[in-house]
Design a protein around this nucleic acid. Structure first.
Length: 471
RNA sequence: GUCCCCAUCGUCUAGCCUGGCCUAGGACAUUGCCCUUUCAAGGCAGUAACACGGGUUCAAAUCCCGUUGGGGACACCA
């Protein structure tokens, strides 16, 4: 068996779509598993829609989710000679012919056919003209087979049969000399030695158009696999109106790349009841047999849950590192410089059970930077009242007597005071919480103190006391 | 319109190929309870699906046919 060679071939006409990422992911997984090669190819033959920024967006997106390629990125616009020479080869061997129909005329005829309820196909009127000396604006068409069948043994959908009578003669070279998709894709897949063409479902009906071109050119026909589409909640193709579709938008919303990958792979693929997979597990367990045949609805709720899982279980230092840009963006640049990586990781541990995204985490983590705290006025009004001043003061004095912070000792001391004062835990805990964090909701009090450290805990307790005295 | 693909809880899916173990399993979401210093997290429990109609068979979610529904393709876009 030859080495597996697969590719991801996006067209650079915008941001990198999550559907594209999923297609790339399946290819990448298969290549890794089979110790094959994953190739990145940019299909930019549409001059009017392709942009360099989009190419960069694809590369950035792929890098972010960690899908690396062994060859490429290739750009089709750098391979024009290849398409032209192969097109001419088809012409010379009688597999292609010049068409002098004007684009507008074609369009008109198509509309007419549609109006009559006929198939809007090219009628083949130039097929037998035998033009050998074409005018400058002629296009080259491929002579599609008109009888027989084209059979695909799809990796995902199984055997699919197309009658060749549904085929028409596609243009392979435009009048401007540029190849069309259905042609350049065949030349590239053949020349790059692609063994498995795995792409979106929307390409399924392109496949019987492409197979005869492989054959006419004398190339081996690769295996094909067609991945089902991703739909929005209303079961139509996923688009902007369903929410964010750009992979980088999810980065900006505070999703972890591993969570994204895990969610996307489970959208259409399964391994029994398992939901969470490490990358290595994915590589080991991936199989075309368990790729779903039907389209899947993108479920942001489940993605969010999965992100929360990854925030909870990823190495804290790794999460902390991913969090830094978000903190900087939130105006905490100076604060971060003043703080160690270890402490930041500790902070992540403190709040990781509460934040489902890095964006939420920024908010959870904010109170632990700086000397003082920003009070939530509602919280102050409710808990930092003059009535609490005496107990708070006693607590401060007791804590003061400890020369270092010790979670167990401080907690004991706190609970003892609660008992002595004949209070309920919450009656003291909430005011202290507000004093330390400025808010009514936070992680466990003593974990908070640990992260704050002895001195800052005492300082904030004192400030809270002053605030409570004000009434 | 023509051609192609698809069809299990609201959603992602297991089971289907190799019929009986399915009283249809898991996950997200949702509801209730428990835990609890707050908010979470966690634990337990609940609601909830084989699109429909015919066959084949002792037996069908599973095999066959049809219907319906959804999606895709039919460009000098990719």
């Amino acid at each position: 068996m030859n080495q597996v060679r697969v590719r991801f071939a996006p067209s650079p006409t915008g941001f990198l779509h999550i559907g594209g990422v999923r297609t790339a992911l399946f290819n990448w997984l298969f290549a890794r598993q089979q110790q094959g090669v994953f190739i990145l190819r940019i299909e930019d033959t549409d001059q009017s829609r392709s942009t360099d920024e989009s190419i960069q967006a694809i590369i950035d997106g792929m890098n972010w989710v960690g899908l690396d390629w062994g060859e490429g990125p290739f750009r089709q616009t750098e391979r024009m000679d290849l398409y032209r020479s192969h097109a001419m080869k088809l012409f010379e061997t009688g597999h292609a012919y010049w068409c002098v129909c004007k684009a507008e005329a074609l369009e008109a005829r198509r509309k007419e056919a549609e109006a009559k309820g006929l198939s809007p196909r090219y009628d083949g009127r130039c097929r037998n003209l035998g033009i050998t000396d074409p005018p400058g604006d002629a296009a080259l068409r491929f002579k599609a087979p008109q009888e027989g069948q084209t059979v695909i043994d799809d990796l995902i959908k199984g055997k699919i049969v197309f009658d060749n009578t549904v085929l028409d003669d596609v243009i392979i070279l435009r009048s401007n000399g540029y190849p069309t998709y259905n042609f350049s894709v065949v030349v590239d897949d053949a020349l790059m030695g692609i063994t498995h063409v795995v792409r979106g479902d929307d390409h399924l009906t392109n496949t019987p158009r492409q197979i005869p071109i492989f054959e006419a050119l004398g190339f081996a026909v690769p295996r094909f696999g067609h991945l089902p589409m991703i739909l929005g909640a209303d079961k139509t193709r996923l688009s902007k109106r369903h929410g964010a579709t750009s992979i980088m938008a999810y980065k900006d919303m505070g999703y972890l790349p591993d969570a994204m990958v895990n969610y996307l792979v489970r959208l259409g693929w399964s391994h029994g009841d398992q939901e969470l997979f490490s990358r290595q597990e994915l590589i080991n367990k991936f199989s075309w047999d368990h790729v779903q045949k039907s389209a899947a609805v993108f479920n942001p709720d489940k993605l969010l849950w999965m992100n929360a899982e990854y925030i909870k279980t990823s190495p804290p230092r790794q999460v902390a590192q991913a969090l830094v840009p978000f903190l900087e963006q939130a105006g905490l640049k100076k604060e971060i410089v003043a703080v160690s990586d270890e402490w930041l990781a500790q902070l992540v541990v403190l709040v990781k059970e509460r934040a489902k995204t890095l964006v939420e985490m920024v908010d959870w983590v904010r109170p632990y930077f700086g000397q003082t705290v920003t009070f939530d006025e509602e919280a102050v009004k409710k808990f930092l009242t003059p009535a609490i001043v005496p107990v708070l003061s006693k607590l401060g004095t007791r804590f003061q007597n400890f020369s270092v912070f010790s979670k167990a000792e401080w907690e004991n001391s706190f609970k003892q005071l609660v008992v002595e004062e004949n209070m309920k835990m919450g009656q003291l805990a909430q005011p202290v919480r507000v004093a330390l964090t400025g808010r009514t909701a936070s992680p466990g009090l003593f974990e908070v103190m640990e992260v704050l450290g002895r001195d800052r805990t005492l300082f904030r307790l004192q400030k809270g006391l002053e605030r409570a005295s004000m009434g």
